[in-house]
């Protein structure tokens, strides 16, 4: 049997990955452009990055975005993990079908719909729109992504460990913290990161649910993009890309190392 890649496979991979990465690479390159024009190269310069430090409105927006992201991702991880536990450990409860629907529907629901409906809820409740409402909205749509990530991990691990802890007299709470959580925590961490980046990224839902005084970075970027492409935005985008990519790569490497160590331990245990 033929193993490895044929020529067609290689072409598919090269075309696909160039398509995925070329626009981002070009964006990063032109953030170092000396010219104000984004499409004509005029030499290397970091002038746009230095200008960012003096753009107070942009820094404020970045600070709002960061706080919304940290709070909403943490609460979403808590709620999402609970929902994952509920769906994977309790096969029968009242409203299970409804809950499954409410977890999966937001994953594909167009953001315009989620944003508008949440805004109308906040208006009906007469909540002051701003930081709090954006955070609440972000918790609601990101928790479903956390649920999916954690649920797939809960499905794949050895249930007999939990049964054993229960048989030995551990309460469900103790079992969860001593047995389940240590086993699923990479998925919980991945869920948190996903929720955090989704929150950093969101323009539509934040635009609907915000009020005066709370402008997030994507909203700021969007309003400037509408006026035209500028190297300053390229610089902001490059910084964001750098932060997120570093986070993802580091997380992946840690996870990989953990798996390798775990495999080695298991081999040693089997040999011993």
């Amino acid at each position: 049997m033929r193993q490895g890649l044929s020529k067609i496979n290689v072409v598919g991979l090269v075309v696909g990955f160039s398509f995925l990465y070329l626009p981002i690479v070009l964006l990063v390159i032109f953030s170092f452009n000396a010219s104000r024009l984004v499409t004509v190269w005029a030499g290397f310069s970091t002038v746009w990055y230095r200008q960012l430090w003096h753009n107070q409105a942009l820094l404020d927006a970045a600070w709002v975005t960061l706080r919304v992201g940290l709070i909403s991702a943490s609460v979403a991880t808590l709620l999402g993990t609970m929902a994952a536990l509920a769906l994977s450990r309790y096969p029968r409860f009242f409203g299970r079908t409804l809950m499954t629907g409410m977890v999966y529907a937001p994953l594909v629901m167009p953001e315009v719909i989620t944003g508008l409906s949440l805004l109308l809820l906040f208006v009906a409740l007469d909540l002051n729109r701003g930081f709090v409402t954006i955070t609440l909205a972000h918790i609601s749509f990101t928790m479903c992504f956390v649920t999916v990530v954690v649920q797939s991990r809960l499905m794949s691990f050895d249930r007999s460990l939990e049964d054993a802890a229960m048989d030995l007299g551990a309460t469900p709470t103790v079992t969860f913290f001593q047995v389940t959580l240590p086993l699923i925590w990479p998925a919980v961490a991945a869920g948190w990161m996903l929720a955090f980046t989704l929150s950093l990224d969101d323009l539509v839902i934040a635009s609907f649910t915000t009020g005066p005084g709370a402008t997030t970075l994507p909203m700021k970027i969007y309003s400037q993009v509408r006026l035209g492409v500028t190297p300053e935005i390229n610089a902001v985008c490059t910084i964001l890309i750098a932060i997120v990519s570093t986070g993802v790569i580091v997380a992946t490497l840690i996870n990989k190392r953990r798996l390798i160590l775990q495999a080695r331990d298991e081999r040693l245990a089997a040999a011993g």
């Binding site: 995925l20 981002i24 964006l27 996903l194 990224d201 985008c237 964001l240 890309i241 997120v244």
Partner: peptide, 8 residues
């Protein structure tokens, strides 16, 4: 790329 901003 899925992690990096959609808007960007």
């Amino acid at each position: 790329p899925f992690w990096t901003s959609f808007l960007i």
